[in-house]
């Protein structure tokens, strides 16, 4: 119930979810604007993934209302390609178009994976496989793109490349993005809004107005980074960030 513009890309009101114990999500409300890139931060176990899965329609929303567009796509932490279908076919699966194949190939070209279209997924490197997963999401022309720690399993250099790629794709297609991450630097590099989830609610909701392309050396950047780290309770020993 934020001051949202006319039609939000996704809206959650009073979402409560518990797995037997105290609620993981406790009357959570959140509205995502169209074309907005939001990063959702939070310590592990705070329900980030549960919120994302609810938005994806994978988890039920027993209490509260969740309004999401039909055109939405998910990229998980693992590529989750069907190993028995060739890469292009993985991208084309579920597309209800006559030209599904050429759309899939175009999406692969956009993520720089044209040369692997005919390959079996298990022969891809980690970065290639995740690019294919991004292409599979992209080809669905989502209004809402849900990313569940999509680059967490990649090495630092590949992660950097993927972040650049994601930024470019977002700027070209302008879906609303919800990026679940535990990496404050990733959030500050990509998002124009940062959310921190704590005790089942959005504890912090900050716009990121830093100019793009982002530079960690920017004084505001460093200040916001410290602020976010503090709100994640990482002032002490266990900084998860790289």
């Amino acid at each position: 119930m934020n001051a949202a513009p006319p039609v939000p890309a996704a809206q959650v009101i009073g979402l409560t979810r518990s797995f037997g114990g105290p609620p993981v999500l406790d009357r959570l409300s959140l509205s995502l604007r169209r074309g907005e890139f939001a990063a959702l931060l939070g310590r592990s176990g705070t329900g980030k993934s549960t919120l994302l899965r609810t938005l994806a329609g994978l988890d039920p929303a027993p209490a509260g209302s969740v309004r999401v567009p039909a055109a939405r796509a998910v990229v998980f932490q693992e590529p989750r390609l069907f190993p028995w279908r060739r890469v292009w076919h993985n991208i084309a699966l579920g597309l209800r178009f006559a030209d599904a194949r050429s759309r899939a190939l175009a999406a692969l070209a956009e993520v720089g994976l044209s040369h692997r279209a005919q390959a079996w997924p298990l022969t891809l490197s980690g970065g290639e496989a995740q690019r294919a997963a991004v292409a599979r999401a992209l080809v669905r022309q989502p209004e809402l793109l849900l990313l569940d720690e999509p680059f967490g399993a990649l090495d630092a250099l590949t992660r950097l490349r993927m972040q650049t790629l994601l930024l470019r794709l977002w700027q070209n297609h302008r879906p609303a993005v919800l990026l679940v991450t535990h990496d404050v630097d990733e959030a500050l590099l990509l998002a124009d809004r940062v959310l921190v989830l704590e005790n089942g609610r959005i504890a912090l909701d900050r716009p990121v107005t830093l100019p793009r392309p982002r530079h960690p050396a920017h004084p505001d950047h460093a200040r916001l980074r410290e602020h976010l780290l503090a709100s994640l309770g990482a002032g002490q020993s266990d900084r998860e960030q790289s």
Partner: peptide
């Protein structure tokens, strides 16, 4: 995990069986 993918990319039951 692949069933979750099938759900998010909107595969029907026959498609899920086949693919």
């Amino acid at each position: 995990k692949l069933f979750e993918v099938a759900a998010t990319i909107g595969l029907s039951f026959p498609e899920t069986v086949a693919h």
